[in-house]
Design a protein around this nucleic acid. Structure first.
Lengths: 252, 252
DNA sequence: CGCGCGTTTGAACGGGCTCAAACCTTGTGG
DNA sequence: CCACAAGGTTTGAGCCCGTTCAAACGCGCG
């Protein structure tokens, strides 16, 4: 019998992996509006000609920051490839991870108010972003109405997802938080066309802890407990979900 | 010496209070774009004629719900008067209070994605809302560009504030969470032109608990502890802040 | 190789939850 | 106007879970 655990993970079913697998060898530097719609999975009303409108790409290596707290607003970004973390660094040294943007996520909407980004966004893997300049959004009297509507829509989606993440801190038990976190990760991988049963977490235990407001040790212990109960199996960053049902029953 | 504690609170320095004080006697049922801008405190670029555009108002009594989870999107709302709570009711009976919208807050942006509101919004006091119909936002080719930009801006602000609230759950100690919550309430009252030193909380301890992810008892105990240290004084819903500095020093 | 960092596990402490009871306020109906 | 009920608030006692401190191991990288 084949032991799935020991098989090397191929780039075919993982959106990130080693920097080598992620070559970013595509030399194109521009994305069309159509690609934006595909990325965002926006199936709303399309109108008229969208040809000609091109958006610049921006590539990031692991650890590079996409946006910095305090930086003046220069537009929105849509993640084309890779995973990032959105974090707030408090003056007292405390850290809070708000979200882990992945393919199709919208970045930077917090920068419109006060014309300044309010959080740090750092690449957890090599990334490819698409920039929507502020001018495109705010240009008066242009025919870009469906770009605007799409931005509204995507922004609304980000709010919704953030609310879900916010609610995630509700659960009393840390195991339940971690279980729900794994569920959302599984769902997001599924949405991107990858396996919901087996994936590699792009973030550290510490990041997860800062996201769920618990310590590293607690996250690790929660993982161990879930393994003990046969619900998941863990090999460092690689997670296999053995029973989605059991995972779902941890919701409180 | 005058004992401030025993003085009755007058409606002059409180935005809510008894239903009697809040007469809502203004018979006008429409608000101008100018009033919207004032409410939102939007000082961005105004352009051209904004005359003629009127927005319908909607009044709520205590306990009535402004939006319901699952209800189809019918527009955005701006709070003109009163306080509400935005909450998510989980299937398992758990509750999470996302925010306490007050004068100038934007409601309903979460409804654009999926064309359905994703949270319940309930009036904690009598309220007066202004409705921005979906048609106004999405009408193609209209000259309402600065309405759109204002909506962007307000939405961005809501995201920012939600992030702050989210971060509020970061603190390890419950006393610190409550202290920070009181600070933000104080700030919001100040922004509305009321005293930052003395105000009446429009929400119950339970709501605060659901907002900060702690139990009622913990909130109550935190209040008592802050009173014990001479930082605030409490008379049921009435809060007096005796030392803003001391309150600030609880930030972790 | 050795260093740094991420991960895992253990032991002990402490803070928040749970359960319980008492008090106060508010609203309702007699 | 009072009685009563329902719900909000406060406080106490005991327990459990998550933090803290500590140590060990593995992995990647210079």
């Amino acid at each position: 019998m084949l032991n799935l655990q020991t098989l090397p993970l191929s780039a075919q079913w993982q959106p990130h992996c080693s920097p080598h697998a992620l070559k970013l060898s595509n030399d194109e530097r521009w994305s069309s509006l159509q690609e934006l719609q595909d990325l965002l999975q926006y199936h709303g009303p399309l109108q008229g000609r969208s040809d000609g409108e091109l958006f610049q790409r921006r590539r990031l290596k692991v650890g590079q920051s996409a946006l910095t707290m305090g930086q003046t607003f220069d537009g929105l970004y849509v993640v084309r490839l890779g995973t990032l973390k959105t974090m707030i660094n408090h003056a007292d040294g405390g850290v809070h991870v708000l979200a882990f943007p992945m393919k199709g996520s919208l970045l930077g909407f917090d920068g419109i108010y006060k014309n300044t980004y309010t959080s740090d966004v750092v690449a957890l893997t090599d990334c490819d972003l698409i920039r929507i300049p502020a001018a495109e959004l705010f240009a008066p009297g242009r025919g870009n109405n469906h770009l605007e509507q799409m931005a509204y829509w995507a922004c609304s989606r980000e709010i919704t997802q953030e609310q879900e993440a916010y609610s995630l801190t509700r659960s009393v038990k840390s195991e339940a938080r971690v279980a729900r976190f794994l569920q959302t990760m599984s769902q997001r991988f599924a949405d991107m066309g990858f396996s919901p049963n087996r994936f590699i977490l792009p973030m550290t235990r510490r990041d997860i802890g800062h996201h769920l407001s618990v310590t590293v040790e607690t996250v690790s212990r929660a993982f161990s407990a879930l393994v003990q109960q046969g619900i998941i199996s863990v090999d460092f960053r690689e997670i296999s979900i053995l029973s989605h049902d059991a995972l779902r029953n941890f919701e409180r």
